[in-house]
């Protein structure tokens, strides 16, 4: 389903990704692991089209994954480190808007309930804690269609119960046929979810 081949990304003379390659099938999960500065976020950004690699290619279903193609955007749901929020939209309105942008009828209540955001549905993001904002960002992946989930350190700012929920949710995503690519420093989450690892900076 997803094939990453010979990905190279350099900033100036600093080579962050030097020919990274792997493939990921539907219903499977790959964890990107490595020390700080190894290029985990850069790799995920290149995969979803938030950054452009200098060389190499990212294929989805055998075709180049182009972020400007609506079919790619329909297939790939991602939460990286660049999620922003509208200061004047409530939690519920954010999710409603995203569902509409994907052309699906908004049904946000189950997702809000699952992520413990039900009571916060009318609040604006400025009134949320960083952990709650993280949950809202993750919720954005589950109100829309998806076949590939790309998450950058999804366990960040989640409490112990939140991490248990995350593992269970990612397992359900896999069972539904969705491929999951995530970067993580949490060995327990990697152990529980990943079917394969992509090691960087080794």
């Amino acid at each position: 389903m997803l094939v990453v081949d010979g990905l190279v990304r350099q900033f100036g003379t600093a080579v962050v990704l030097a020919g990274v390659g792997f493939s990921l099938g539907p219903g499977r999960a790959a964890a990107v692991v490595g020390p700080n500065g190894a290029g985990k976020t850069t790799l995920l950004r290149c995969v979803v089209g938030a950054d452009r690699p200098d060389h190499g290619e990212v294929l989805l279903d055998g075709n180049e994954l182009r972020e400007d193609d609506p079919r790619s955007r329909a297939a790939v749901a991602s939460v990286l480190d660049d999620v922003g929020f509208f200061p004047d939209l409530s939690v519920g309105e954010h999710l409603d808007l995203l569902a509409r942008a994907h052309g699906v009828e908004p049904d946000t209540a189950p997702v809000l309930a699952e992520l413990g955001l039900e009571a916060l549905a009318d609040r604006t993001p400025v009134g949320l804690s960083s952990g709650e904002r993280r949950r809202l960002a993750l919720a954005s992946c589950f109100v829309r269609p998806r076949r590939l989930l790309v998450l950058d350190e999804p366990e960040q700012r989640l409490d112990a119960a939140g991490r248990r929920w995350l593992v269970e949710r990612l397992e359900r995503e896999k069972a539904a046929g969705c491929a999951v690519l995530f970067a993580s420093h949490d060995a327990a989450v990697v152990e529980a979810v990943a079917d394969q690892t992509v090691e960087l900076g080794a």
Partner: peptide
């Protein structure tokens, strides 16, 4: 970032 994540990430005609 807000427009990119919540609006333009959709399949809407960019």
């Amino acid at each position: 970032p807000a427009v990119r994540h919540w609006v333009l990430s959709g399949v809407v005609d960019r």
